[in-house]
Amino acid sequence: MKALMPALAAATALVAPSLAFARPVTFEATLKNYGGNGAYVALYVTDAAGKYRGTLWMAGGKAKYYRHLSDWQRMSGGAATEIDGITGASIGSGKTLKITADIADAMIDAGYQVRVDTAVEDGMDNPSEIVVPLSTGSAGNPSPGKGYIKSFLASF
């Protein structure tokens, strides 16, 4: 879906100088049939120290609702530049968000984590609903979320 994540590239010093040192990683988040309006979903990466390193995707276009993605908001600072060009529509009940990002080799299996925040109008806010290591070892292993995510899967 996306050849390169500019925000992630900008946010990390670890990105490889050329695509030869990066590989495409596909993330799939399938939502439960919670039956409300479309969910706002933020996918972002933290390093081994738990520090925010960049956003992979923001599903949901209205900035005024971003404060409901409270961990993403707090860690990233919520600046528009963080999600410039990597924003899409909110994800409907039961639907799947699937994105592919080129991730630097140096970030894989190096203690980095992928986090997902979700929020639904008149429903729950689920900060860090998913926290999974960015590692080839966990590939193909779907993890359930505590809020609206039925399963989350990364494949390298």
Binding site: D122, G123, M124, D125, N126, K146, G147
Partner: peptide, 24 residues
């Protein structure tokens, strides 16, 4: 307990986690 909120409807709601289940 994650959150206690007064909804625009005037209802008072609580978002909680009991083990793996989260609810309002």
């Amino acid at each position: 307990v994650d959150k206690i909120a007064r909804r625009p409807t005037g209802a008072l709601t609580v978002t909680y986690s009991d083990g793996d289940t989260k609810g309002v």
